[in-house]
Design a protein around this nucleic acid. Structure first.
Lengths: 157, 157
DNA sequence: CTGCAACTTCAAGTCAACTTGAAGTCAAGG
DNA sequence: CCTTGACTTCAAGTTGACTTGAAGTTGCAG
């Protein structure tokens, strides 16, 4: 099947669950690397699979590809990350997740306290105005504070 | 200041915290309405402010503009929503938030159970592979399962 | 009546993370 | 050797929610 230890883009796609176009994109963005055959086709080392698992995990945690690239670059060159490397990173992620959860809980609890009141005041309601930013003198942004959250609870086909 | 009870786009922008361009966009998308002066400038009723608060709140909860438009259309024509209307909607939101929170908690807990293990297996790790979808026969998507989450915890300037 | 900020429309640009398409090349089983 | 599926590049398209720019018009304080 695979000539000793090197994987074609199709094989990596199949094993990682990423589309080949995504793999090429990640390479263009500097998240993964490949060698080339004489004819110019990509050949990957098996370690790319772990790297891709890392990418998937990080992106599940909400990091942008840019942030992921930065974290990957901060990992020791080439070698498998140690327990300490991994802990440093997951601690970072853990904080992020905790923040996100807390933000959503504030929103939900505000919603509960609001149920039935119909208040939705631009200045006072915690749901339409979380964090009280609108009370400041700065002009408020048009964008929402909370993210475009997952619309599909399950992966698309 | 404001000629009795009608607001210009600039005034609404200032009071709602949305950019004028966003207000025009919302109007184009059918989320809000306006009358026009003889010269064609927009004049808003004060009720638009509540509507905009609703829009902000809903978008904080993670609804798309399309979904928000649908919910707005399901509200009784013109009249202020009753407690029952409001409860129906917030119950819907509450469920959404609960789901989102639960998803993040699963991720966080998986992270905890993973700390230090360095496993990140494509097939087995719950962080890189939440929900076990990759175990299915279908080709996995390239996209993340969880949303692009809030990167700025506070509104941009 | 004038000046100028605030408004108008419409098209195009932005961002992220990819996907799609076109047009052509490579690798390997038979 | 030949076929054919897998691969290559590069440009352009997609989605959502807006913003920006250009070019022109309106409304109101003075």
């Amino acid at each position: 099947m695979d000539s000793r230890d090197v994987l074609s883009v199709g094989t990596v796609a199949q094993r990682s669950g990423f589309a080949t176009s995504a793999l090429r994109y990640y390479e263009a963005q500097g998240l993964i690397a490949s060698e080339r055959t004489g004819g110019g086709q990509r050949r990957y080392q098996r370690s790319v699979l772990r790297r891709l698992a890392f990418i998937r995990a990080a992106s599940n945690v909400g990091l942008s590809l840019e942030e992921i690239r930065d974290e990957l670059q901060r990992l020791p060159e080439g070698r498998t990350p140690t327990r300490a490397d991994w802990q440093r990173i997951t601690r970072h992620w853990r904080g992020r997740l905790d923040e996100q959860i807390a933000a959503l809980e504030r929103l939900r609890d505000g919603l509960d306290s609001c149920i039935g009141c119909g208040c939705l005041s631009l200045q006072r309601c915690g749901i339409s105005n979380p964090g009280d930013w609108a009370a400041s003198t700065k002009t408020a942004p048009g964008a929402a504070f909370l993210p475009r959250l997952l619309r599909e609870q399950h992966p698309p086909n």
